[in-house]
Nucleic acid binder design. Structure first.
Lengths: 184, 184
DNA sequence: TTTATAATATATCAAGCCGATATATTAAAT
DNA sequence: ATTTAATATATCGGCTTGATATATTATAAA
């Protein structure tokens, strides 16, 4: 098997096996929810994917009428069907594509010698703060009632964020000079 | 500034500031070279990018005639120009886009409960072996004469690979049951 | 209270990227 | 001698991304 990429449709099904959701809510799962640190999909992929899934009978659409008074576009809540569940299981059975990591900040650090020291320092410290924040956030989450697979992934995310943040804390002086001015 | 994505053109310039290269060689830098663990670009981006860079005068093309006998398509070696160097420095001065990580394997582990145990185990152990291998490989590299920025990034890659591999070694039993059969 | 801002929600589109594929040569291995 | 792997350039359809448009509701501020 050619190890095809996990497409937007499968990603949506993954969210929907955990419960009904709107397109907007699905997006949030990838932006700040449980998938935030290892997957991403935008609206431009989600809405077409949901339309296709509905076409194929893998999800059903529950259009909630808006209190009957406004002419607002109806909110659409999506629910996975039995066929959808089977399709999702089948997608999980395929060999996964290799990880794809794209870190522009790392690219900058690679070329540290070509950069303005003040800019490098600002970029470095922002990045480090972000990783530290993400690690701290993951620690605040309650493990109560969360399935083992999700806790495992959460723990792996924490290990990853902490490893990077620790490395950057310990090795900061290798790239960042000690300037006298504290200004940015 | 809107923190635009590092595009294929900038990525190519980055390789070329380190020395002349063909499109094929540029690709290898991202496939198995120093950028392998934090960036990726395919031929479908590289060749058009190089054509545009040549158009804009940011790179020059050295067409090496093939020993004068065959009608083989000439090998094209690209060299960064002075304007190209300036454009690259300018690109590094922009605020970097946030990291994008896409791990289909992590997505599978998240939904471990829906997976066939044997398949999960195979995927898990392949992934772990890959991360362990990458870490070991980075350790074999000679730091002699390599600029600090590149060594720093190499070290960060090592920290990352090792953190994930260690976590997966220590927490394997949380996802993977101890089956009696050793078969795959 | 009114106003402004942020959050919720759906949808589209151009620009660009990715994976696959085609083609051809040369080096290495069997 | 023959097959396989590596070198090398190039294109293309399909998909994703980021930005944008639109509209409503909740929240915060003045």
């Amino acid at each position: 098997m050619p190890a095809t990429d996990m497409d937007a449709k499968t990603l949506c099904l993954g969210v929907l096996v955990m419960g009904d959701a709107t397109g907007y809510e699905i997006r949030k799962m990838f932006e700040e929810g449980p998938f935030a640190h290892f997957q991403d999909v935008g609206y431009g992929s989600i809405y077409p994917a949901l339309a296709k899934l509905a076409d194929e009978g893998l999800v059903s659409v529950i259009e909630v009428p808006e209190n009957g008074h406004s002419d607002r576009r109806d909110k659409k809540t999506y629910r996975i069907t039995e066929a959808g569940q089977r399709a999702f299981i089948a997608a999980l059975a395929k060999p996964p594509a290799p990880d794809k990591i794209r870190s522009d900040t790392t690219f900058l650090m690679f070329f540290a010698e070509f950069m303005d020291p003040a800019h490098l320092r600002a970029v470095y410290d922002d990045y480090l703060a972000y990783y530290r924040d993400r690690a701290e956030f993951l620690k605040t989450l309650d493990p109560e009632g969360v399935p083992e697979g999700r806790l495992f992934v959460r723990g792996m995310g924490l290990a990853f964020y902490e490893a990077v943040a620790d490395y950057m804390t310990e090795n900061r002086s290798r790239l960042i000079g000690e300037e006298a001015d504290a200004a940015d």
